[in-house]
Design a protein around this nucleic acid. Structure first.
Lengths: 132, 132
DNA sequence: AGTGCGGATGACGTAAACGTAAGAGAAACG
DNA sequence: CGTTTCTCTTACGTTTACGTCATCCGCACT
């Protein structure tokens, strides 16, 4: 069905702007095929875009993501390229595991802070009703 | 002991540059006291800087972090300000929880990709030794 | 008195990741 | 056939988060 998608369909599907998709193409993160002038984004582009957006969310730069994408691209049957991709992948994996630990800690602390803030508010409430 | 710290001590302790600390002060994320011209960073500044660096790591902008810091600053006994901080805090908390879920998924997938990449490499190895 | 050293204050520069406007071409619609 | 509607390329603009001078000040040695 949706074997390929237009730029507009991509934008709607992934909530990005056309500019962003063209920018990613210029940076060689995506490689849509052309039908005349127009871009057609394939399943592969969609998979890559998903990974790009995920990577961005975790604070990786587009350049870091570009290196990592080689690991997911099946056509990296070139041995040296594959080795390189695995090294990059391992580095990212480590970083992400560290990030998860830090995230857990941050979530715990923030939860605590919110609770303590609410407690202070509740105190203000009861102080007010006692004053009536 | 180290009740207050100079800018250089801060830089060494947190691995940032003086420029960064002055920048954060300009953005009202930090508020070191002054001894003459020189900045002296207090315990409070250190706690805030820790939160700032953590927030950055999770992809929050300095402006978002600034809003969140009110929640941790104990002197936000102003009720409306406290309410606002709690709302912001809840929003961040939700986002971080979502982020953790996405992170878990990404870690799982990346682990898989690395394993599959290594399998391909191993195949190349055995193909080579069989060719001898 | 001279000379570093640490820190301060502008002010301009920069990299990343797009935003935005201008102009043009194809294509779909009434 | 004219007019929106998409999309294209080109190119300059913008925001965030600092980097990088240049210059100056005050204090500690010697």
């Amino acid at each position: 069905m949706t074997e390929t998608m237009t730029i507009r369909q991509m934008c709607d599907a992934f909530d990005v702007t056309p500019r962003t998709l063209r920018f990613y193409e210029a940076k060689e993160l995506l490689a849509p095929i052309r039908q005349g002038q127009k871009r057609l984004f394939t399943r592969r582009d969609r998979a890559r875009l998903k990974l790009i957006l995920r990577g961005k969310r975790f604070g990786f730069s587009l350049e870091e993501i570009r290196q990592l994408l080689d690991l997911y691209s099946v056509d990296s049957n070139q041995e040296t390229q594959m080795r390189e991709a695995i090294v990059v992948g391992r580095r990212h994996l480590e970083e992400m595991i560290e990030q998860r630990a830090a995230l857990d800690e941050a979530i715990a602390e923030l939860t605590e802070q919110i609770a303590s803030g609410e407690a202070q508010l509740a105190e203000l409430q009861s102080a007010r009703s006692a004053a009536e």
